[in-house]
């Protein structure tokens, strides 16, 4: 009887931490991987951090309309190695603009942070020169054809 009591006493303490660890959203062992998850996956894939990051990956329990898993998006400008985003190319810029004329967020287009900043600058310049709208649909967003008109 004494032995049973001792065993009961020994079993009780280990049971308590197990219960604590089982609660969702707790600690590093929890599902979803917390904030360390997406970074680790980016490293395993072997690509630069910025490519894997903005897609979000399977990051945490998301409550919303977005799906839980999203495919990894790569920055188009990094792939094409564009070091200069030309504000005159409305056809390229209009891909990163909503129907209403708003700039799309990085998590939807997969653009890296640096290119998103440059893209914002280019889109705002294009808006100022009426190549892109401030609000409303971008009609006539074909690239302008350059014609040499003034040969003297």
């Amino acid at each position: 009887m004494a032995e049973e009591q001792k065993q009961g006493g020994q079993e009780a303490p280990p049971a308590a931490p197990r219960a604590e660890g089982g609660t969702p959203g707790g600690g590093h062992g929890g599902p979803g991987g917390g904030h360390g998850g997406p970074r680790r996956e980016g490293g395993r894939e072997g690509g630069p951090r910025r490519e894997g990051g903005p897609g979000g990956g399977p990051g945490g329990p998301r409550r919303g309309k977005r799906q839980y898993f999203r495919k990894k998006k790569v920055c188009k400008f990094c792939v094409e190695k564009m070091d200069l985003i030309d504000y005159k190319r409305a056809d390229i810029l209009s891909q990163f603009v909503q129907e209403r004329g708003k700039i799309l967020p990085r998590r939807m287009t997969g653009v890296c942070a640096r290119h998103q900043r440059w893209l914002g600058v280019a889109i705002k310049r294009a808006r100022n020169i009426a190549l892109l709208p401030f609000a409303g649909s971008a009609v006539g967003s074909t690239a302008p054809k350059a014609v040499e008109a003034h040969k003297s």
Partner: peptide, 14 residues
């Protein structure tokens, strides 16, 4: 450079 891009539709009324 001097270029003429022709007559284009504007994104908004100017």
């Amino acid at each position: 450079k001097a270029e003429h891009w022709g007559t284009r539709k504007l994104a908004y009324r100017v």
